[in-house]
Design a protein around this nucleic acid. Structure first.
Lengths: 249, 249
DNA sequence: GCCCTGCCTTGATGCAGATCAAACGGGAAC
DNA sequence: GTTCCCGTTTGATCTGCATCAAGGCAGGGC
C-alpha cells in the first residue's frame, strides 16, 4: 500500500474539532481507504446525561468523539461507582475484536460521536497497518494514563487528588487553546459528583477540598465551575506530581 | 506477506514456558521474519529483588518474560509507592516508539527475560501487521485490567481488595495448571508489602485482612505464603465482583 | 413575585485503615 | 545448639475521609 502525503477525512474537516491525535489515524490513508471509511461512518448525537451504551450491551460500532464529553464508568452491584476514563473530542472508543461494551459510557455534556460500523472497520484495519499502529499508540497512551491514575487512586490524599485533576484539565485546556501567558482559566466539565467518581472520593470531600484550595489561594473560583489557576507550579506541587508529570490523557 | 500455518519461534520452544499469548505473536510469522526475530533477540536474567530498569532510564529493548515475576511500580518523591502492573511469564514489556522507561521494573523472583533490540523490532513490526495487531490486542487487555484495578483502588474496602487479589492469582493459577476439581491451592508470589503496594494499602492492613479471611474460613494458610481457597465462589462474593468477573490479566 | 429542583456547601459525628510500636517465627550463618 | 535477620503478626492509638444532616444559591416554570 502506497504511503502518501497526509489526507484528512472530510468529516474531520467538517466537524472543526479534529485534533492531531484523530487526524493521525487518517493522515496516511489513500483515497481508496478514505472512501471505505466514508462509507462505514455515521453520526450519533446525545444529550447531556444520556447513556451512550451500558456495560455488557452489544456494541457493533467503534467511534470517536467529535464534540462534547463522555465518561467511562464501572459500577458495583451496591452502586459504588468509579470512573475509569474521560472521553474528550478526538478520543476513540470501542475495541476491535470485542462485541460487548466493557463500561457504561455516558454523555456528560451534549455529545456528537462519529461512529464506524465495527465489522467493516475491523476489515479495514486488517489491511491497513498504519491504522492499527496508530490505534496501538493511542491505546498505549491510555494505558499510561490509567496507570498514572492508579497511583492517584491508591496513594494520593484528597487534596492531592483534586489538585491533580485540576492540573490535568488545565494542561489539556492549555494545549487545546494555547494562550499568551498569565493565569490559566477554564470551566470545569464535571459536576462535583463526577469529580468524586473519578477520584475515588465522595462529593462532600471534593467540595471541601476545592474550597480549601481556594482558601489557600492556589485557585480562584467564580461561580461553581469557573476556575482560575493562579500559579500552575504551585498546583503541581500540591498535586504531588514529579516536576515533569506530563499525563498523556 | 503470505500467512502460513503456525510456526513457533525456536526460543519459545526452548524456554518451555511459552503460552498461548506469547506464541500468538509468532504463530503467523514466516521464516524470514523468524530469522529476523532470532537475530535481534538476547536473554537477560535477574535475581530476586534486582531492578531491571528505573523509571526514566533509557530503554533500548522490548522484552517478554520467560520465567519468574516482575513488577511495574511508580514512586512519589516522598516514597509512597503504587504497583501498576504485574509481569508474569509471557507478558510483554516495553513500548515501541518510546525510548525511556515509564516505570520501575523490578524482579520479585529470579527472572529470565527474552529481549529484542528496540530499533530492529520496531522496523519489523512496521512491516509485519499481525505483530502490531497482536500487540494491540495485548495492550487492550492490559488497559482493561488497569481499569478494573482502578475500581478496586478507588472503591473497594481492604477486605474486598485482598479477596480480589487472591481471586485473580487463583484464577491465573488454575488457567496455567488446570486441575481436576476441589480447592485451589497456590503459593503467593508476593510479600505482604508488595501486596500492599499493589492494593493501595499498608502491609499491616494486608496482614490483618488475610488473617480475617482465614479466620472466616474463606481461605486456609499453611505458612505465610501457601494458600488454599476453600470456596472460590465465596471468595468472589467477598471480592464484590460481579458474578462473571473475568479479569484479563 | 413565588416555589421547586438540582447542585453545591458546611457542620457534626463515626469509623476504616494508617501509624506507631512491640513481639513472633523460621531460615541461614556460625 | 545460638544468634541474627527479615518478613510477618498483633496491639494501641490516631486521623482523614465517609456518612448523616441541614441549609444555601441560582435558574426555570408559573
Amino acid at each position: 500500500m502506497a504511503l502518501r502525503e497526509p489526507v484528512i477525512l472530510p468529516h474531520l474537516q467538517d466537524c472543526g474539532s479534529c485534533t492531531i491525535r484523530h487526524r493521525a489515524v487518517c493522515a496516511r490513508c489513500d483515497s481508496d481507504e478514505l472512501a471505505r471509511l466514508e462509507q462505514m461512518k455515521y453520526y450519533r448525537s446525545f444529550q447531556a446525561g444520556q447513556t451512550v451504551i451500558w456495560s455488557g450491551d452489544r456494541m457493533d460500532f467503534v467511534a470517536s468523539v467529535v464534540s462534547g464529553i463522555a465518561t467511562l464508568t464501572q459500577t458495583m452491584e451496591d452502586g459504588r461507582r468509579q470512573m475509569v476514563g474521560l472521553l474528550l473530542p478526538s478520543d476513540f472508543v470501542g475495541r476491535p475484536g470485542r462485541s460487548t461494551a466493557a463500561y457504561d459510557v455516558t454523555a456528560t455534556t451534549d455529545l456528537l460521536m462519529c461512529c464506524f460500523r465495527k465489522k467493516p472497520f475491523e476489515d479495514l484495519i486488517l489491511s491497513t497497518p498504519h491504522i492499527s499502529q496508530r490505534l496501538l499508540e493511542m491505546t498505549l497512551d491510555e494505558l499510561d494514563a490509567a496507570r498514572e491514575w492508579m497511583l492517584l487512586l491508591g496513594r494520593k490524599t484528597a487534596r492531592e487528588k483534586i489538585a491533580s485533576l485540576l492540573a490535568i484539565i488545565a494542561r489539556r485546556d492549555v494545549s487545546l487553546n494555547p494562550r499568551k501567558s498569565g493565569p490559566i482559566v477554564f470551566d470545569l466539565p464535571l459536576t462535583r459528583e463526577e469529580m468524586a467518581d473519578y477520584l475515588g472520593l465522595t462529593l462532600e470531600t471534593v467540595s471541601r477540598q476545592v474550597s480549601a484550595l481556594k482558601r489557600d489561594g492556589v485557585i480562584s473560583l467564580e461561580g461553581k465551575r469557573h476556575v482560575t489557576v493562579n500559579d500552575f507550579d504551585r498546583l503541581l506541587e500540591v498535586a504531588g506530581d514529579d516536576s515533569d508529570g506530563g499525563y498523556p490523557v
